[in-house]
Design a protein around this nucleic acid. Structure first.
Length: 885
RNA sequence: GGGCGAUUAGCUCAGCGGUAGAGCAUCUCGUUUACACCGAGGAGGUCGGGGGUUCGAAUCCCUCAUCGCCCACCA
């Protein structure tokens, strides 16, 4: 006997273990069938499951389970990402607690610590995914820095280098002074902040008292100025072209040059040029062959290129000093308050990034991007929802070289070795590099390895094929590449999706996935992004502990629309937990009434109206769920089952069959038991992709007193009910019956039948088809009476039926009852409308402005309209009275 | 500056050419042997404003407004 409620905590772990141990998650168990593959967006190994992960993996799992039940050979490839910066930061923080420091301990020791940390704490997220019920093939779990994947990274790097697509370049990068590494353009977070625009006067050389005024938001960079630029057409400055300005504080003469980059409309029309610390100025400097002065140390302090007074000062300290000194010298023209975007690191959003001149490795992605655009253009990969296609195109067509080196320790170390003269040898191993060097120098030569590591996204970009064994020509690659679908959030379209497309096409000569489903973000109830600092983070594990994984999963599925962000409130999860309880109790009802599965039951053979109806409804729902899941309309699929289970199966079907199950017609009883059990089984199946635990548990428990199941629910075949008859006659009849019951309920309520009063219902038209059919079945009449809180007080005479509710106050024709509530509601609404109209006309007609300006006939017209509305209103009132009376 | 999305019941959202929907909240009634994590019923909306297309628009087009996001720029 089932308990009154489902207890997720007691069941989930056991079922998950059972699934995993059975090998049901393993790919390749059905080698001869069609394949369906998904690669998981690898979560950071440092990570903990947040609601975004929960949504992402719920949807993937729904698809994986759905396709597995449809008989496909499913691979859901799991794994984690080494997450260079995040992990290095976490471990450094841990070490700090033990008074240890990365730089003091050295690279090798530090990396050993990271690996140790990864072994000990890296499994969190994977355990949490299991709690969620994710049916990944854990036997194939990979890590972006494991041996195989690292080999793929080396191979790709070397190949791209040999193809000339990877190269070293010295240019400005976005520099993080705290981590002391370059980051790519994408990793810059521009944050709007209040700031100042300082207008600084630069004296003109040899012309005492004359100045050229420039404006800047970063005054300290003036110490690296090498010119002042004005627009060539700008009359104001024409006379100064070719002259020199004296850079204040540094006391250095710099030329005044003409460049189109300068916008005469902006600021003063004159711009200080600092090629070492501004991306635009860098270009100007290059055009004019200006020198480049770097005034910063990697930590962001001023270096020996600046006057002694400023050396060693942090950039923000230096800013204060520079401004103070300029002010003292009377060289500040004015200070404007402005709001402007300042580049920050995306991780902590607290460190201001600096444009900084360094030598880095770049990947020229122009040609790769072209192919990636073409593939989407030709429909080889499609985006759902479609509008993300444009986002992808836009970024791809403006793509810049990708800075792939990072000055970190944790990551794939770049396979480049330097000879004593700086000659670079890029090879997969040190041995190969040495061989190449020996060949080049004519003798064995000591080499020094590049210290940098690759951007984390470099290895992620290979994920769809590196996890399948590439560069080996494995059978998995052949079978599962391209993968069927990628499920991910829009925030990593550029970081990840686009780069997988490029790498996949380049190295596999085919797209990495045929479809991309982009889901929305999960926000808190108020629509705020969840963040630790705001303290509004909802931990999915807490939700799972309180409501069960099924409830969380179902809530997320129901909310997974294609447009808006998801605002997940607790009450939604609670509603879904209640839904689980409802299902559980429906099963409990079946159990109590011995509705157990009969193996050879054929739904086509049902004869009872109510049974034929539920069979048809079940088939309809399965088809909706199937179609919706195929199109990634998760909310529609989940919504369809929800509605079917609660509003159709529980509210009507189970109520209608009660009198049958308690009656004496043994044939009808047997058929009804079989049908109820059959329907419940189909419900469990179509609900399983969303609520795997409760459905699996019920699947097993419902068979305890019957023939044992052949398999677990997760391996049962997805119901294909397309061939079942539609039973339109039964559906129509049941609809009539349901309307009748609703009508009677409504009548009672609308007429304010006081307790103890009575309404007599009688049959006016005995020939009415449905009515005849209805009264033919005594059981159904009983049901009607029961459901509408009526009591059958007399035998049903031929051609008429009489129900009595309480004491009789009115008699209503049974056939009309159905329409009563609807008619009354309709009339009431029309009446309200008419009354509203009257109010509006009255307001208009008493409006002085209207009366004084409008011509006579318009006013007349308004009055007529008012009269019409009033007439309508009184007619409606009349009709309502008649109806109730 | 460029682009995208949103605006529907008190709240959260679905519907996207054919009589305005769900869940939650609220009100009334009800503890009849699956379920109070329940059941029945009610109240609550000129579908952001304005224009247009159509026999018919929440739905398609134009426009304005507000909010959100992405990209770019910032002397």
């Amino acid at each position: 006997m089932l308990d009154k409620t489902f207890k997720p905590g007691e069941v989930e772990t056991r079922l998950y273990q059972q699934w995993e141990e059975s090998g049901a998650f393993r790919a390749g168990t059905r080698p001869k069938t069609e394949s369906f593959s998904i690669v998981i967006p690898p979560p950071n190994v440092t990570g903990n499951l947040h609601l975004g992960h929960a949504l992402n993996n719920t949807l993937q799992d729904a698809l994986a389970r759905f396709e597995r039940m449809r008989g496909k050979n499913v691979l859901w490839q799991p794994g984690t990402d080494h997450a260079g910066i995040a992990t290095q930061l976490v471990v450094e923080r841990e070490l700090a607690k033990r008074q240890l420091n990365r730089k003091r301990m050295g690279r090798e020791a530090f990396l050993a610590e990271v690996w140790k940390w990864k072994e000990e704490s890296g499994g969190n997220i994977v355990r949490q995914l299991r709690r969620l019920g994710a049916s990944c093939d854990w036997s194939r779990e990979r890590f972006t820095m494991d041996e195989g994947l690292s080999r793929a990274v080396l191979k790709v790097f070397v190949a791209l280098h040999k193809q000339g697509l990877i190269y070293k370049d010295k240019r400005l990068v976005n520099w993080d002074p705290r981590l002391q590494t370059a980051v790519s353009d994408l990793e810059v977070e521009n944050i709007e902040l209040k700031g100042h625009l300082w207008h600084i006067k630069y004296p003109i050389e040899g012309q005492d008292g004359r100045f050229i005024t420039v404006a800047t938001t970063r005054p300290e960079t003036m110490l690296g100025d090498v010119a002042v630029a004005v627009h060539p057409e700008d009359e104001r400055y024409r006379a100064l072209l070719g002259k020199r300005a004296i850079l204040p504080l540094a006391n250095r003469p710099i030329p005044i040059i003409a460049d189109e980059y300068t916008d005469p409309e902006k600021g003063t029309g004159a711009v200080k040029i600092t090629p070492g610390h501004d991306f635009n100025d860098f270009e100007v400097g290059r055009r004019h062959k200006l020198p480049l002065i770097n005034i910063l140390t990697p930590e962001g302090a001023l270096n020996e290129q600046v006057p002694e007074a400023y050396r060693g000062l942090d950039r923000f300290e230096a800013r204060k000093r520079v401004v103070a000194d300029l002010e003292a010298a009377g060289l500040i023209d004015k200070i404007e308050d402005i709001v402007h975007a300042i580049p920050h690191d995306e991780k902590t959003k607290t460190v201001v990034l600096e444009p900084y001149l360094t030598e880095q490795w770049y990947l020229n992605v122009t040609s790769l991007a072209e192919k990636a655009v073409e593939a989407v253009n030709k429909g080889r990969t499609t985006f759902t929802p479609e509008h993300w296609t444009n986002v992808y195109y836009n970024w791809m067509s403006n793509i810049q070289p990708w800075c792939i080196s990072r000055q970190l320790w944790w990551g794939h170390q770049i396979p480049a070795w330097y000879g004593p003269d700086g000659k670079i040898f890029v090879e997969e191993t040190e041995a190969l590099a040495k061989t190449a060097a020996e060949k080049h120098y004519g003798k064995p030569t000591a080499l020094k390895r590049d210290q940098d590591v690759l951007d984390t996204w470099f290895s992620s970009a290979l994920w769809p094929f590196s996890t399948l064994g590439w560069p080996e020509k494995t059978s998995e690659l052949k079978r599962y590449y391209p993968t069927s679908v990628l499920v991910t959030g829009f925030d990593i379209i550029f970081f990840w999706v686009a780069r997988m497309m490029m790498m996949g096409l380049h190295f596999m000569n085919d797209v990495p996935f045929k479809k991309v489903f982009i889901h929305t973000r999960v926000l808190d109830e108020k629509g705020q992004k969840m963040s630790k600092t705001k303290g509004n983070v909802v931990d999915p594990l807490d939700l799972i502990n309180e409501y069960g994984a099924d409830a969380l999963r179902f809530a997320l599925s129901l909310a997974a629309g294609q447009g808006k962000d998801i605002r997940l409130g607790l009450n939604r999860v609670e509603t879904c937990r209640n839904f689980g309880t409802k299902l559980w109790n429906a099963a409990r009802f079946c159990e109590m009434n011995e509705c157990v599965r009969k193996r050879d039951f054929d739904p086509k053979t049902a004869t009872e109206t109510v049974n034929r109806w539920i069979v048809a409804e079940t088939a309809r729902t399965v088809i909706v769920v199937t179609d919706s899941l195929e199109a990634f309309r998760f909310n529609e699929a989940a919504g369809a089952v929800y509605h079917f289970v609660w509003d159709v199966f529980c509210d009507w079907y189970l109520e209608f069959i009660k009198p049958v199950l308690n009656g004496n017609d043994e044939d009808a009883k047997a058929e009804t038991r079989d049908t109820a059990a059959w329907t419940l089984d189909r419900i469990l199946q179509m609900l399983h992709p969303f609520m795997p635990f409760i459905t699996e548990e019920l699947w097993a428990r419902m068979a305890e007193h019957a023939e044992p199941r052949r398999s677990m629910l997760m391996l049962s075949p997805w119901p294909d009910l397309k061939a079942l008859p539609k039973h339109e006659d039964a559906t129509a009849e049941m609809r009539w019956l349901i309307d009748l019951v609703s009508g009677v309920r409504s009548v009672r309520s609308e007429m304010n039948v006081p307790p103890g009063a009575r309404i007599a219902l009688y049959m006016k038209d005995a020939n009415r088809d449905s009515a005849t059919r209805l009264v033919r079945h005594r059981d159904e009449v009983m049901t009607l009476a029961r459901l509408s809180s009526a009591r059958v007080t007399t035998e049903i005479p031929a051609g008429s039926a009489q129900f009595v509710i309480g004491e009789a106050v009115a008699a209503l024709p049974l056939g009309d009852v159905i329409d009563f509530a609807k008619e009354r509601t309709r009339l009431a609404k029309e009446l309200k409308k008419a009354e509203d109209e009257i109010t509006r006309f009255d307001a208009k007609l008493s409006n002085e402005a209207f009366v004084s300006r409008a011509p006579e006939d318009v006013i007349e017209e308004q009055k007529e309209k008012r009269a019409e509305a009033a007439a309508l209103a009184s007619r409606l009132t009349e009709a309502l009275k008649r109806l109730s009376g």
